[in-house]
Amino acid sequence: MAARIVNEFTKGFWKEIAPLRFALGICPALAVSTKVESALGMGFAVVFVLCMSNVLVSAVRNIVPDKVRIAVFISIIATGVVIVELVMQAYFYPLFLVLGIWIPLIVVNCVVLGRAEAFARKNPVLLSLSDGLGMGLGFTLSLVVISSIREILGDGTWLGMMVLPEAYPGFGFLLRPPGAFVIFGLVLGIMNVISARLENKTA
């Protein structure tokens, strides 16, 4: 059992890392990845919603009739999202202003509903929690990777700290929307090559 919990947790980081492997949840990954700070804030918001929805969906999995399960899942997820909205407004207001509409949009993040439907409704609570935590942190990791590239090359900073020499002119293209698509595409391409190499080795 313990081994399975660990396994469900770690798969979210590489084997099934949602945005980079399946191109799921890419909208927020593109939108809030101009700065590492906002990427982290978004990531943790998703971790919370994902854990909460996975645990609750798994807890009610045997009493919810199949026909209305999507409506129930959506209600649970939306409740989690509103809690995040309120708490973020109350205690992290500047972050709330930066993330803006992307906080309510977590409700339609395919990763969240996807895990409820594909995993939590068939598995016990503890496994679902570990799956949610892993998937959520994997999502956060993807956002941090993309935003690190964009912030370092675009602005010369990382988490607000100067990392490139003062004279670095910055590469504004990366901070604008088209740059997000190009960087994301390139990162996905590199992921494909690395995993193809790894599979060749083990085969």
């Binding site: 191109a23 890419i26 604008r176 929307p177 088209p178 740059g179 997000a180 698509f181 190009v182 994301f184 595409g185 390139l186 996905l188 391409g189 590199i190 494909n192 090559v193």
Partner: peptide
């Protein structure tokens, strides 16, 4: 080969975004 499938779609979207901008 490196860019086949989703990666090239995203990069194309970036180029399209540039022209829309």
């Amino acid at each position: 080969k490196l860019l086949q499938g989703v990666p090239i779609t995203l990069i194309t979207a970036g180029m399209m975004g540039l022209s829309f901008a």
